[in-house]
Protein backbone atom coordinates (compact mmCIF):
# COMPACT_ATOMS: atom_id res chain seq x y z
CA UNK A 1 0.00 0.00 0.00
CA UNK A 2 2.78 2.41 0.98
CA UNK A 3 4.57 1.62 -2.28
CA UNK A 4 1.53 2.55 -4.36
CA UNK A 5 1.08 5.78 -2.45
CA UNK A 6 4.75 6.64 -2.99
CA UNK A 7 4.46 5.82 -6.69
CA UNK A 8 1.42 8.07 -7.00
CA UNK A 9 3.12 10.98 -5.21
CA UNK A 10 6.37 10.66 -7.21
CA UNK A 11 4.47 10.72 -10.50
CA UNK A 12 2.12 13.45 -9.34
CA UNK A 13 5.18 15.66 -8.77
CA UNK A 14 6.63 14.66 -12.14
CA UNK A 15 3.36 15.54 -13.87
CA UNK A 16 3.19 18.84 -12.05
CA UNK A 17 6.73 20.06 -12.77
CA UNK A 18 7.61 18.50 -16.13
CA UNK A 19 6.76 21.21 -18.64
CA UNK A 20 7.06 20.68 -22.38
CA UNK A 21 5.98 17.13 -23.11
CA UNK A 22 7.30 13.58 -22.82
CA UNK A 23 11.05 14.20 -22.90
CA UNK A 24 10.67 16.65 -20.00
CA UNK A 25 9.84 13.72 -17.71
CA UNK A 26 13.32 12.19 -18.19
CA UNK A 27 15.21 14.36 -15.65
CA UNK A 28 12.50 13.60 -13.07
CA UNK A 29 12.72 9.87 -13.71
CA UNK A 30 16.50 10.01 -13.45
CA UNK A 31 16.21 11.74 -10.10
CA UNK A 32 13.60 9.16 -9.06
CA UNK A 33 15.98 6.34 -9.97
CA UNK A 34 18.74 7.92 -7.84
CA UNK A 35 16.53 8.39 -4.80
CA UNK A 36 14.35 5.29 -4.78
CA UNK A 37 16.41 2.65 -6.58
CA UNK A 38 13.18 1.40 -8.22
CA UNK A 39 14.98 1.06 -11.54
CA UNK A 40 18.51 1.57 -12.91
CA UNK A 41 19.73 4.22 -15.34
CA UNK A 42 20.14 1.48 -17.94
CA UNK A 43 16.49 0.52 -17.51
CA UNK A 44 15.57 4.19 -17.90
CA UNK A 45 17.33 4.31 -21.27
CA UNK A 46 15.48 1.15 -22.32
CA UNK A 47 12.20 2.73 -21.26
CA UNK A 48 12.86 5.77 -23.42
CA UNK A 49 13.45 3.47 -26.39
CA UNK A 50 10.30 1.43 -25.73
CA UNK A 51 8.21 4.56 -25.14
CA UNK A 52 9.41 6.11 -28.40
CA UNK A 53 8.65 3.01 -30.41
CA UNK A 54 5.19 2.09 -29.06
CA UNK A 55 1.87 3.89 -29.52
CA UNK A 56 0.84 6.48 -26.98
CA UNK A 57 2.33 9.68 -25.54
CA UNK A 58 5.95 9.18 -24.38
CA UNK A 59 5.38 10.58 -20.89
CA UNK A 60 2.43 8.25 -20.27
CA UNK A 61 4.35 5.25 -21.60
CA UNK A 62 7.30 5.97 -19.31
CA UNK A 63 5.04 6.28 -16.27
CA UNK A 64 3.35 2.96 -17.01
CA UNK A 65 6.73 1.31 -17.53
CA UNK A 66 8.26 2.56 -14.26
CA UNK A 67 5.07 1.72 -12.39
CA UNK A 68 5.05 -1.80 -13.83
CA UNK A 69 8.70 -2.43 -12.89
CA UNK A 70 8.03 -1.17 -9.37
CA UNK A 71 4.60 -2.59 -8.58
CA UNK A 72 3.35 -4.79 -11.40
CA UNK A 73 0.16 -4.00 -13.29
CA UNK A 74 -1.48 -2.05 -10.43
CA UNK A 75 1.78 -0.08 -10.13
CA UNK A 76 1.63 0.81 -13.82
CA UNK A 77 -1.93 2.04 -13.53
CA UNK A 78 -1.28 4.05 -10.36
CA UNK A 79 1.90 5.70 -11.69
CA UNK A 80 0.07 6.72 -14.87
CA UNK A 81 -2.88 8.14 -12.96
CA UNK A 82 -0.43 10.01 -10.73
CA UNK A 83 1.21 11.56 -13.80
CA UNK A 84 -2.03 12.77 -15.40
CA UNK A 85 -3.85 13.99 -12.26
CA UNK A 86 -2.01 17.35 -12.04
CA UNK A 87 -2.49 17.89 -15.80
CA UNK A 88 -6.19 17.32 -15.39
CA UNK A 89 -6.48 19.73 -12.46
CA UNK A 90 -4.31 22.43 -14.05
CA UNK A 91 -6.15 22.25 -17.38
CA UNK A 92 -9.56 22.40 -15.68
CA UNK A 93 -8.44 25.57 -13.88
CA UNK A 94 -6.93 27.05 -17.04
CA UNK A 95 -10.06 26.21 -19.04
CA UNK A 96 -12.15 28.15 -16.55
CA UNK A 97 -9.96 31.24 -16.93
CA UNK A 98 -8.86 30.70 -20.51
CA UNK A 99 -8.85 34.36 -21.53
CA UNK A 100 -7.20 35.60 -18.35
CA UNK A 101 -4.59 32.84 -18.60
CA UNK A 102 -3.66 33.60 -22.19
CA UNK A 103 -3.35 37.33 -21.60
CA UNK A 104 -1.63 37.16 -18.22
CA UNK A 105 1.81 38.76 -18.16
CA UNK A 106 2.64 36.76 -15.02
CA UNK A 107 1.97 33.43 -16.73
CA UNK A 108 4.08 34.59 -19.64
CA UNK A 109 6.96 35.60 -17.32
CA UNK A 110 6.87 32.32 -15.41
CA UNK A 111 7.11 30.29 -18.59
CA UNK A 112 9.78 32.57 -20.00
CA UNK A 113 11.93 31.32 -17.11
CA UNK A 114 10.78 27.71 -17.05
CA UNK A 115 11.14 26.89 -20.76
CA UNK A 116 14.94 27.20 -21.05
CA UNK A 117 15.31 25.51 -17.64
CA UNK A 118 13.27 22.55 -18.86
CA UNK A 119 15.47 22.25 -21.95
CA UNK A 120 18.59 22.39 -19.76
CA UNK A 121 17.23 19.66 -17.47
CA UNK A 122 16.60 17.34 -20.42
CA UNK A 123 20.11 18.12 -21.66
CA UNK A 124 21.61 17.26 -18.27
CA UNK A 125 19.66 13.99 -18.18
CA UNK A 126 20.95 13.30 -21.69
CA UNK A 127 24.53 13.72 -20.41
CA UNK A 128 24.01 11.00 -17.83
CA UNK A 129 22.48 8.62 -20.39
CA UNK A 130 25.50 9.39 -22.57
CA UNK A 131 27.87 8.54 -19.71
CA UNK A 132 26.06 5.26 -19.36
CA UNK A 133 26.14 4.12 -22.99
CA UNK A 134 29.27 5.55 -24.50
CA UNK A 135 31.69 6.78 -21.85
CA UNK A 136 33.07 4.16 -19.48
CA UNK A 137 34.75 6.08 -16.67
CA UNK A 138 35.29 2.97 -14.52
CA UNK A 139 37.30 1.19 -17.21
CA UNK A 140 39.38 4.34 -17.71
CA UNK A 141 40.13 4.74 -14.01
CA UNK A 142 41.10 1.07 -13.83
CA UNK A 143 43.46 0.97 -16.81
CA UNK A 144 44.41 4.67 -17.21
CA UNK A 145 44.28 4.16 -20.96
CA UNK A 146 42.45 6.91 -22.83
CA UNK A 147 41.06 4.37 -25.30
CA UNK A 148 39.13 2.71 -22.51
CA UNK A 149 37.29 5.94 -21.76
CA UNK A 150 34.98 5.60 -24.73
CA UNK A 151 33.45 2.60 -26.37
CA UNK A 152 34.54 2.88 -30.05
CA UNK A 153 31.63 0.77 -31.32
CA UNK A 154 29.15 3.01 -29.51
CA UNK A 155 30.84 6.18 -30.79
CA UNK A 156 30.59 4.99 -34.39
CA UNK A 157 26.92 4.06 -34.01
CA UNK A 158 26.24 7.38 -32.27
CA UNK A 159 27.88 9.34 -35.11
CA UNK A 160 26.06 7.27 -37.73
CA UNK A 161 22.62 7.85 -36.21
CA UNK A 162 23.35 11.52 -35.67
CA UNK A 163 24.23 11.91 -39.37
CA UNK A 164 21.11 9.97 -40.44
CA UNK A 165 18.80 12.02 -38.22
CA UNK A 166 20.32 15.43 -38.95
CA UNK A 167 22.20 15.56 -42.24
CA UNK A 168 20.85 12.96 -44.66
CA UNK A 169 17.78 14.49 -46.29
CA UNK A 170 16.17 11.18 -47.15
CA UNK A 171 16.36 9.64 -43.66
CA UNK A 172 15.94 12.83 -41.58
CA UNK A 173 12.15 12.61 -41.54
CA UNK A 174 12.02 8.89 -40.65
CA UNK A 175 10.22 7.91 -37.48
CA UNK A 176 12.53 7.29 -34.45
CA UNK A 177 11.30 3.69 -34.54
CA UNK A 178 13.37 3.11 -37.70
CA UNK A 179 16.58 4.22 -35.99
CA UNK A 180 15.80 2.25 -32.84
CA UNK A 181 15.27 -0.92 -34.92
CA UNK A 182 18.49 -0.23 -36.83
CA UNK A 183 20.46 0.20 -33.58
CA UNK A 184 18.93 -2.99 -32.19
CA UNK A 185 20.21 -4.95 -35.19
CA UNK A 186 23.66 -3.33 -35.01
CA UNK A 187 23.78 -4.04 -31.27
CA UNK A 188 22.95 -7.69 -31.87
CA UNK A 189 25.29 -8.23 -34.83
CA UNK A 190 28.31 -6.42 -33.37
CA UNK A 191 27.73 -7.67 -29.79
CA UNK A 192 27.48 -4.31 -27.98
Amino acid sequence: MMLYLKLFIEFFLTGLFAVGGGMATIPFLEDMSNRTGWFTHAQLADMIAVSESTPGPIGVNMATYVGYLTGGIPGGIIATLGLVTPSCIVILIVAAFLKAFRNSKYVERVFYGIRPASTALIGAAGVSVLMLCIVDVDAFVLSKKIFDLVDPKAIILFALIWVFTNLVKKTKKFHPLVFIAFSAIIGLVFKF
Partner: peptide
Protein backbone atom coordinates in the same frame (compact mmCIF):
# COMPACT_ATOMS: atom_id res chain seq x y z
CA UNK B 1 23.26 -6.67 -26.94
CA UNK B 2 20.10 -5.41 -28.59
CA UNK B 3 19.36 -3.00 -25.77
CA UNK B 4 22.97 -1.80 -25.54
CA UNK B 5 22.67 -0.83 -29.21
CA UNK B 6 19.30 0.82 -28.68
CA UNK B 7 20.64 2.90 -25.77
CA UNK B 8 23.15 4.57 -28.10
CA UNK B 9 20.25 5.51 -30.37
CA UNK B 10 18.37 6.93 -27.37
CA UNK B 11 21.33 9.24 -26.68
CA UNK B 12 21.04 10.68 -30.19
CA UNK B 13 17.25 11.02 -29.89
CA UNK B 14 17.63 12.98 -26.63
CA UNK B 15 20.35 15.14 -28.17
CA UNK B 16 18.11 15.86 -31.17
CA UNK B 17 15.16 16.85 -29.03
CA UNK B 18 17.33 19.09 -26.87
CA UNK B 19 18.55 20.86 -30.02
CA UNK B 20 14.99 21.22 -31.27
CA UNK B 21 13.79 22.57 -27.90
CA UNK B 22 16.84 24.84 -27.67
Amino acid sequence: HIFAGIRVCVCVLILNSVVKLW
